[in-house]
Simulated assay, not measured.
Amino acid sequence: MTKISFGIRVPNSGPLSGVENIARTARKAEELGFDSVFVHDHVVWSTEMHRHHISSGAHEALADDQSADFYEALTVIGYLAAVTSRVQLGIACLVMPTRNPIYAAKQLATLDHLSGGRLIAGVGLGSKASHSSNEFDVFEVDFKQRANLTDEYIDAMRAIWTQPLATYKGRHLSFEDAEIYPKPLQRPHPPIWVGGWTDYAARRTGRAGDGWVPGWLSPKEMARGAEIVRETAAEHGRDPGAITIAVEKLAVIKRDRDAALERAIPTVRTSSTTYERDVDDISFALDRHIFGSVDDVKRRVEEFVEAGVTHFELKLIYPSIDDLEEQMTLWADEILPLYQD
């Protein structure tokens, strides 16, 4: 039986972001038996996006005096490596076109050592959020070139990780005989998970990724995308079965369905125009995320598992860290045992 794993997004951004809350969430996830904790990435972030793209926390936690705090992803991973001992540590996902891939490769290799080989290196093109917050403009990166840059940067990082004297030649980046150490602790390198919900992202995963982690896809859409991943992997002589099919899901679990929807809907509506796919009505989100009672959540998780998903990165919606811990505990008590050996 394929192992089904579950991870928790920690609040490195959003209305409840902060060092204490990041550490508290990660430690609690490890204590409860979750398999991983995740951060996400933007360097440039705006007050407007802070109020309308809530990836950690909830609409109810917003306050007028909050700054748009967004703790840098790789730095946070290094911190979490020291305050946890078992859970995998993932980034979903680095905005790859705004990162120097040579420097990023060295940072990620270092983090793999600091974490004892627990790193998951998620990479993505950059989303509507990065465009709306002017992130690409600040870095002077052509938004239209983000796919080509990401493809090259993935290959360049892999060259650095696997070649004693690394050489790479591309359209946007070239280097020769670069001696860069340490090599990652995981061999040949940390798993590269590719973000993005499009067919192009699925094909990128099949060609160059070790995992696919889209958001905003229904079970039916996930099944189709997973098939594209597998077909592309086979075309490139890779083992389709070795690629993790993950999902990034907004989630609320409560004993009562109405209470769960009451918690979820305001935050979904607040964020309705800031994701890669606009939310025209709440039914669109309900078909793509995981909200409801324990029985609802069991059913929804199984729908995604049947579609080929083997990992869930959960972006729980919570107005306080106490509420987050309550939901994590309920998930650990009711959902995790269904998928443990």
Rank of each mutant, 00 (worst) to 15 (best):
S218V: 09
G196V: 06
D199W: 02
P219N: 10
A201N: 01
R207P: 07
R203N: 00
Q186H: 07
S218C: 11
I192R: 00
R203K: 15
A223K: 15
T198I: 04
G209S: 08
V194L: 12
I192D: 01
Q186T: 04
W212I: 06
P191T: 07
G195E: 08
R203S: 07
A208G: 12
L217G: 03
K220C: 03
V194R: 01
A223S: 14
R203D: 01
G195M: 07
Y200C: 00
R204D: 00
D199K: 13
G196F: 05
R204L: 12
G211K: 02
W212P: 04
P214H: 10
W197G: 11
P188C: 12
R207L: 11
W212G: 05
L185W: 03
R187W: 05
G215A: 15
K183G: 03
K220G: 15
G206A: 06
D210R: 02
V213G: 01
P219R: 09
D210F: 02
P184T: 11
M222T: 15
M222D: 04
A208V: 13
E221V: 02
W216S: 13
G211A: 08
H189Q: 06
L217P: 03
M222I: 15
L185Y: 09
I192F: 13
P214I: 11
R187C: 09
L185S: 04
G211H: 02
G211L: 06
A223G: 13
Q186V: 07
M222V: 15
Q186E: 10
P190M: 09
G211Q: 03
P219S: 11
I192Y: 04
P184W: 08
Q186C: 09
G211N: 05
E221I: 03
G211C: 06
G196M: 10
G215E: 13
W212Q: 07
P190Q: 08
G196P: 06
G209Y: 00
G206T: 05
P214G: 08
K220H: 09
K220T: 15
L185G: 03
Y200V: 12
P191R: 05
